[in-house]
Simulated assay, not measured.
Amino acid sequence: MAMAVAHTADPVIVAKGLVKRFGGRRVVDGFDLIVPQGSVYGVLGPNGAGKTTTLRMLLGIIEPDTGERHLLGMRHPRDASDRVGYLPEERGLYPAMKARDAIAFMGALRGLPWREGRARAATLLETAGLGHAADDKIRKLSKGMAQLVQLLGSIVHQPDLLVLDEPFSGLDPVNQERLESLILAERDRGATIVLSTHVMAHAQRLCDRLAIIAHGKQRFEGTVAEARGTLPQQVHYVPNSPREGLREQLPADARPDGDGWRFELPHSGIEALLKRLIDLGYGISGLSIERPGLHEAFVRIVGEAAAEPSE
């Protein structure tokens, strides 16, 4: 789970009113963003929502049609490129290169001396559990190992800002866990991380703040807790005596869930309902009150956006 971060320095990224059109369609439509220093910030959305286009505008890879952005204090983001690590959605490594050399090469592109890059690469590979593959050519690595190598290449120069576009795509659970550990280690080192993903479990564990995009528009911005707070708490109730007539005693939205029932926490609280269930002889075998996860909040927010008329 992401740790609370005290943000006292200037934001690493500030964007206002970013708009990008392709073929007459607004792929990004008025995007605002402030990324605090030292945070893990998620840019979330379904496929085609505009996440990659947004990240590329923030980095200066493409220019917005309107709007402005500052990155690491620079008005022109590419002026800060040596202080940035970027893992694009489209992976790409030279297949004939050895893993350690591929990492050093990516560092050299950001100004890191070759010898220092190879030494750092060896350390990073060991830390990531890939030390045995340091001299293996990229073509011999599994897809997950090659993806981790490319990530290590994006952090070898110890960037102040790390931007990861769908970093978990295609990784097995073991390598997903390794990647999460690497992201948290970079945050603990002092880097700011911006990541896009449509897998909410990773965002819920990693992110301090997040923005949710749908149809190119920003639909939510805030903490994970605030996103989850957009939905009411859920009650899971398991009776002692699940005899007939119980359904009629529960709220209208109650639905079967395992050996019990699930429903929204009533506005008036749960006490009166529980007293009635006990008095009627249904009893309580199990009871929990939970805030819905980020996945449920994401589905609600994106679903509401999908219901809106498009341009």
Rank of each mutant, 00 (worst) to 15 (best):
E186R: 13
I301P: 02
R110A: 12
G144F: 07
R276C: 03
G144W: 08
L58A: 06
I183A: 06
L33M: 15
I138E: 02
R255Q: 15
H295V: 05
Q150E: 15
Y237G: 06
I301Y: 01
F22A: 14
L130T: 08
P46A: 12
A272M: 04
E89H: 01
T127M: 10
D135G: 02
T192Q: 00
I155F: 12
G45L: 10
H215D: 14
A15Q: 04
I61D: 09
L287Y: 05
V149E: 11
L250M: 08
A201C: 04
S81Y: 08
F220N: 12
G45P: 04
P95T: 08
H202A: 04
T127D: 11
R300P: 00
F263R: 02
P173T: 10
D259M: 08
M97K: 02
Q158D: 15
A146D: 10
V174N: 08
D79H: 15
S81L: 11
G42D: 05
V238T: 15
D32F: 02
K98C: 01
D208E: 14
G92Y: 06
T52K: 01
L71F: 04
A191Y: 00
A121S: 12
Y237E: 10
I301H: 00
V5Q: 14
F105R: 01
G85H: 02
A214R: 07
E221R: 05
A104M: 10
G107M: 04
G216V: 06
I278L: 14
Y237Q: 09
D279C: 01
L162I: 15
E296D: 15
A102G: 10
K275F: 13
R120W: 07
L206I: 10
G67M: 09
G260T: 11
L246Y: 05
V28T: 09
Q249S: 09
E63T: 12
E177D: 13
M106A: 09
G38T: 07
A6D: 15
P36H: 14
R100Q: 12
T123R: 14
L231I: 12
G293Y: 03
D160T: 13
L277V: 05
R262M: 10
A49W: 04
T230E: 13
A272V: 02
G17P: 00
A227K: 00
E304M: 04
Q158G: 00
L280T: 01
P256D: 13
M57F: 02
G131V: 06
L59I: 11
Y282L: 07
G258Q: 12
D136A: 14
R120N: 06
Q147V: 05
N175Q: 15
